[in-house]
Amino acid sequence: MDVRHLKRLIRLVEQSEINELEVEDGGTRVKIVKSGPAVPVHVPVPAAEHARPAAAGLPPAEASGPPALDESKLIVVTSPMVGTFYRAPSPGAPSFVEVGQNVSVGQTLCILEAMKLMNELQCEAAGVIREICVENAQPVEFGQRLFLIEP
């Protein structure tokens, strides 16, 4: 089975309501399974990223300012490496994602470049992009927050 045919099949599954497709062609069997959950489910949030003091009764740290996003309900995507943050595959190209956009598991969020290594950071949970925390082409540190996603 050639790659173009495979690509077509993958697109077919992507754009359809079906979650799974298995085809056999000339002795080659291919099974394509949608990676994202079909319906929104509860997505576990990595504990470390939401470690906040559990002291009850304390007032919220930021009392003033615009109504902040309730971060306990958001997924914080942090940088797994030191690098440069790029929102698009090349200068002038449309960004991978925008605020307010729906994203699915496996979707590319940004590129992190380190030593000519282009790393595609892929979405780990489906949701809506609520905030993009870094400007395009800026250096980022390990652990720095990049995106806030509402599942």
Binding site: P46, P80, G106, L112, K116, L117, M118, N119, E120, L121, Q122, C123, E124
Partner: peptide
Amino acid sequence: LCESGIQA
């Protein structure tokens, strides 16, 4: 030219 895919 290196590229990688990173998830979680």
